[in-house]
């Protein structure tokens, strides 16, 4: 059987809220090392990769590898019934056709159980190598969210250019154009506001803002978003979930013909 208890149930709520508009349904894969998901959006332009480590759970048991297909909209409906401070336990019998979500209030005076029907989902799994990237930018998650939101009011795509000490986001639209530059800033007294750039080679790539805006829904999960870019490769946008794992998004670039 599979059974996993997350004391900070809010994490699971935030993860599902961050991905439910991007992917319709997905297989959640459970094995002894943890709980993970990989899924592409319906147009196969972006990919979501979630991994929650077994040791990030208060209790974790997975007797054999299972893949549980769920519709994200249904999962979201159920998780909205959990309070933000509830602990959430997921349970499923081997070969079961449902997964049970149990919500416990902090004083355990309220216990609720919701069963979600599992589905068979055909999904394509991509092998993504653990590349070294040309440039890595770590910036406050709220700042990244604001940049992609603001630029979306002007254009549909963003050119992200990283140099040694700054990252520039630029867009062009019918009404004009916009550029936002963030300089490296390693303020030791305010680590949550730091912007750090690690670069092997200057890089500049163009992406659809619609998807980056969707990725930014993961902002509540982490203080920082980490952008990893390499020439002619998909961008990786990572949100580290402290002590539990990470939620990562990949987006294929726009290529000039």
């Amino acid at each position: 059987m599979f059974e996993a208890r997350l004391a900070q149930g809010a994490l699971l709520k935030k993860v599902v809220e961050a991905i439910k508009d991007l992917i319709e349904d997905a297989n959640f894969d459970c094995n002894s090392s943890g709980f993970s998901l990989q899924a592409m959006d319906s147009s196969h332009v972006s990919l979501v990769a979630l991994s929650l480590r077994a040791d990030g759970f208060e209790h974790y048991r997975c007797d054999r590898n299972v893949s549980m297909g769920m519709k994200l909209a249904s999962l979201s409906k159920i998780l909205k019934c959990a309070n933000g401070d509830d602990a959430i336990t997921m349970k499923s019998e081997d070969n079961g056709d449902t997964i049970t979500f149990m919500f416990e209030s902090p004083e355990q005076e309220r216990l609720s159980e919701f069963d979600l029907k599992l589905m068979d989902i055909d999904s394509e799994h991509l092998g993504i190598p653990d590349n070294e990237y040309d440039a890595t930018v770590k910036l406050p998650a709220a700042e990244f969210q604001r940049i992609v939101k603001d630029l979306s009011t002007i254009g549909d795509t963003v050119e992200i250019s990283v140099t040694k000490d700054a990252v520039k986001f630029g867009t062009t639209g019918d009404i004009g154009n916009a550029n936002i530059m963030c300089r490296q800033n390693k303020a030791a007294d305010k680590p949550d506001e730091s912007t750090e750039i690690d670069i092997n080679e200057a890089v500049s790539l163009t992406f659809a803002l619609r998807y980056l805006n969707s990725f930014a829904k993961a902002t509540p999960l982490s203080t920082h978003a980490v952008l990893k870019l390499s020439k002619e490769l998909p961008i990786l946008v990572e949100y580290h979930i402290p002590e539990v794992g990470r939620l990562a998004f990949y987006l294929a670039p726009k290529i000039e013909d």
Binding site: M40, S43, H44, V45, S46, L47, E124, H125, L126, G127, I128, P129, G155, D156, T157, T172, T206, A208, L233, P234, Y250, A252, P253, K254, I255, E256, D257
Partner: peptide, 14 residues
């Protein structure tokens, strides 16, 4: 803004 390519142009299915 260029041509949008898919993820499968970069990574192979496993």
């Amino acid at each position: 803004g260029g041509r949008q390519v898919g993820m499968t142009a970069f990574y192979a299915a496993t």
